[in-house]
Amino acid sequence: MSEDVLVIGGGIAGIQASLDLAEMGKKVYLVEKKPSIGGIMAQLDKTFPTNDCSI
């Protein structure tokens, strides 16, 4: 049995899931099809409902 985890998609959801798993001691492979991670959020300037900067 393997205890490693594969996360498919490197947007905010995949990044958060990877970080949580990594913090809980799992080895995580985060696979992203684009040249770098970030997803839609990386393309945004500010985000509702706080209008804070996105990255």
């Binding site: 490197g10 970080l19 990594a22 696979v31 992203e32 099809k33 991670i37």
Partner: peptide, 19 residues
């Protein structure tokens, strides 16, 4: 994003797809 890049337990495989 930066945290994921730095975390020793995370291996980022970008520009990659599940086959």
């Amino acid at each position: 994003m930066l945290d994921a890049g730095r975390h020793p337990n995370i291996k980022i495989m970008a520009y990659s797809e599940v086959e």
